[in-house]
Design a protein around this nucleic acid. Structure first.
Lengths: 232, 232
DNA sequence: CACACTTTTCACCACCTGGTGAAAAAAGGC
DNA sequence: GCCTTTTTTCACCAGGTGGTGAAAAGTGTG
């Protein structure tokens, strides 16, 4: 179902059925998001985006400027929501549990908002996570892009973990974060690889199964690394 | 340093200095590998590959056919070496330790060959791992590509882990593999993100630091997931 | 040398790329 | 209604894309 069709059907409540202005801007972002997520930045043309959005090519440049700026707009739109959700979640956890915090609790507070949003937030989020996972694994410019949008909330995670385990070295906290984010992003991007690998036993869309395992996995890995490095 | 220059310098031992035939084929693969790793399949043009290899564009099509076939040739070249190294490593571990196998041992036997190869095998391998990490996170065709090249050795890992923990469900083994491979590929692709994130405390090129932490991390995570799921 | 065969170069094609400038259409204020 | 401003369309460009066919250069064999 193309966005153009969605847009055509969206009227019928007395208001004019044709999207305009800011609505159209969002429609373009939606189409761009899905395409970028599936094929990467270079695998998508502005004409494809325009076609799926039911819009003239020139309109994309009118609203967003160059192709890369469109990409950044896609990336930014949900990053802000994400960062706020994660920050709120971690703050709530800290305030609720205080001295009784655990590493698994902190890690859950960091990851779970993403799982919840992906489950409840509609299809756009799935595309978005696949997009972030791709950027996260892009050596050329992925590092800077990720840093620009996501560094603060990651530092919040690391600092909170440091409170839970004051004996841990920051070095180890950062390495554990990297391992964690690798697992998390791959799970969130739902590539379908585990479906065929497990011959139907697992489904990458089954985020409930992820929730039942990922938090425990990352927390135990974290504790083990801290223990081992402190012993050495 | 472009491959063209390397090639020009490579002579001087009595033999004709100009690479030819199969040598040239490898030169093209090297250039393609580096470029694909940095910019992805769609971010690279056959002309860029030809230019960096010091070769005419038409020669690429002469040797490899279409661009996608060139990509597959790049992917396949090292996949075979990788699969064999990992299979040998795991078989050796099984034969050496027999009944005394541990999950951490199996996981180490699965991952360590990649770290060693990346450290000792020269720059091409770093590019290759970055390439695999990118494919692994590509929803559009990454799943099939990964399956085509890497499924057997993954099944070997899962089956061996099943021997170590006969009580574990296959479902959980596959999920743990997914978490593991997410962490591992991100570490191997050396995106440089951890360098800036940790403000110089960690370096993604420091595979010794990865070795000191990743095995313990994945093994502990694995044990925790099995324990938790069996209890539930 | 001539010969067949492989490897490399050259010129080229049809099509697509991101992007632009001006005209046209809508929308809003009076 | 008119006039200004914003939004949308249209026609177009200069350059790049993957890919091809034929000619040329090189290589080995007799």
């Amino acid at each position: 179902m193309t966005a153009a069709k969605t847009r055509a059907r969206s009227g019928g409540r007395g208001r004019p059925s044709k999207a305009t202005g800011l609505d159209l801007k969002e429609t373009i972002l939606d189409s761009a998001e899905g395409l970028f997520a599936r094929h990467g930045f270079h695998g998508v043309t502005t004409r494809q985006v325009a076609s799926e959005a039911g819009v003239d090519t020139a309109l994309i440049h009118y609203y967003f400027g160059a192709k890369r700026e469109l990409f950044d707009a896609v990336f930014l739109r949900r990053a802000e929501i994400l960062n706020q959700a994660r920050s709120v979640s971690m703050n709530a956890y800290v305030e609720t549990f205080g001295e009784r915090m655990t590493a698994e609790g902190v890690i859950t507070a960091f990851i779970d908002p993403l799982l919840r949003i992906s489950q409840e937030g509609g299809g756009g989020w799935k595309s978005y996570f696949a997009l972030v996972a791709q950027v996260n694994n892009t050596p050329a410019w992925g590092g800077e892009t990720m840093a620009r949008f996501f560094d603060p909330v990651v530092h919040q995670l690391v600092d909170t973990l440091k409170i839970v385990r004051p004996d841990a070295e920051y070095r180890d906290l950062y390495w554990c974060y990297q391992f964690l984010t690798g697992s998390m992003m791959l799970a969130l991007s739902e590539t379908g690889r585990i479906d065929s690998l497990s011959e139907g036993l697992c489904h990458s869309s089954d985020l409930e199964a992820v929730r039942a395992r990922l938090f425990a996995y990352c927390a135990a890995g974290f504790e083990a690394v801290i223990a081992k490095q402190n012993k050495a």
